[in-house]
């Protein structure tokens, strides 16, 4: 296809959009609203996922040492743990530090320990795992492996909390995917219907084009471009709408004062994601056009 043909097809696509201004505007706005619904879920997903990530970072695994372990053995265990690639951070808490912390946290109960004569609290390591090892199964496997190391008395973590968190994240993902798919199909249908209206209005013209030897590509390209433009504009408008809603939400939270800090935590899509969403809109628009063209049969001669 030569450049002249490309220019002609671009001109035709632009003419289509201009001729059917009202239909075009309605299609852009309906697509924008539909994609904004997808966007809200995506935004919720991104923020909840980030929040879940912070919560996961908070999950600490306590590795308690046997009281009989010597200082040298403890150092060797620490060395062994530090060389583990699953490990993100490790903090050693000696028996004395554990006692100090207990006293600081429960000053009224400290006399209970004094009565025992010696410090009953074991030395321990506070471990955080790398993000890819934070799934419930991975944590369990890691804990079981570490438990077998000589000198380690107990590995403790809140399994229920980890499980609940993982289920929560998976649920958000599933809902986001489900809602995304349903609303994307809606966007494709909306754009597809707009294109079908155009096709119907121009069926005589399409028949003439067929008659004079236009190829399927020549006939389809302007409508695919039209769909892409509708999708991209719909997506861009939906992002603008979302940004406005997002800013209003932040302002409201700030004004309330009670949830201070939340406004700092919530984020909007990065420029890259915005661009990707516009490209997705374009793709959905093209898909809508394509479906309509296939169903319409491009006006038989």
């Amino acid at each position: 296809m030569g450049m002249r043909t490309v220019f002609y097809l671009l001109r035709e696509a632009w003419a289509n959009l201009r001729t059917n201004r009202t239909t075009t505007m309605v299609a852009i706005l309906t697509t924008a609203f539909t994609l904004a619904c997808v966007g809200i879920f995506l935004l919720l997903y991104v923020n909840l996922r980030a929040a879940a990530g912070w919560l996961q970072e908070d999950v600490k695994i306590m590795v308690y040492l046997d009281d009989r372990v010597s200082r040298e053995s403890a150092a060797a265990i620490e060395q062994q743990l530090r060389s583990d690639h699953a490990l993100a951070s490790l903090l050693f808490i000696s028996k004395e530090q554990a006692l100090g912390e207990f006293k600081a946290q429960f000053p009224s109960e400290s006399h209970l320990l004094e009565g025992l004569g010696q410090n009953p609290l074991p030395a321990s390591f506070v471990v955080t795992l790398s993000p890819q090892y934070r799934a419930p199964d991975a944590v369990r496997r890691w804990a079981e492996r570490v438990r077998t190391i000589t000198g380690i008395a107990k590995v403790d973590y809140n399994q229920d909390w980890i499980n609940a968190l993982a289920t929560f994240i998976r649920s958000i993902e599933l809902i986001a995917i489900g809602v995304g798919v349903v609303l994307s199909v809606a966007a494709v249908t909306i754009i597809g219907n707009t294109i079908r209206l155009t096709l119907y209005a121009r069926r005589d013209e399409l028949a003439i084009l067929r008659l004079i030897g236009a190829t399927t590509t020549f006939i389809r390209v302007p409508y695919l471009l039209e769909g892409a433009v509708l999708g991209a504009l719909g997506s861009a408008v939906s992002l603008i709408m979302l940004k406005i809603v997002y800013e209003v939400f932040r302002q409201q939270v700030r004004a309330m004062g009670r949830l201070a800090g939340l406004e700092q935590m919530v984020t909007f899509f990065s420029p890259q994601i915005c661009l990707a969403l516009i490209v997705v809109g374009m793709g959905l628009g093209c898909a809508g056009s394509f479906v309509s063209l296939r169903r319409f049969g491009e006006a038989k001669v």
Binding site: G2, R4, T5
Partner: peptide, 28 residues
């Protein structure tokens, strides 16, 4: 092909209508 109902594009000029078969073939 010539038809009873002419089948001309109403929004294109006479020149553009006649040019259409050449345009479709990518003529200069």
């Amino acid at each position: 092909t010539v038809f009873q109902d002419f089948r001309l594009l109403p929004k294109k000029s006479v020149f553009d209508n006649v040019a259409l078969p050449l345009l479709v073939q990518g003529a200069s």
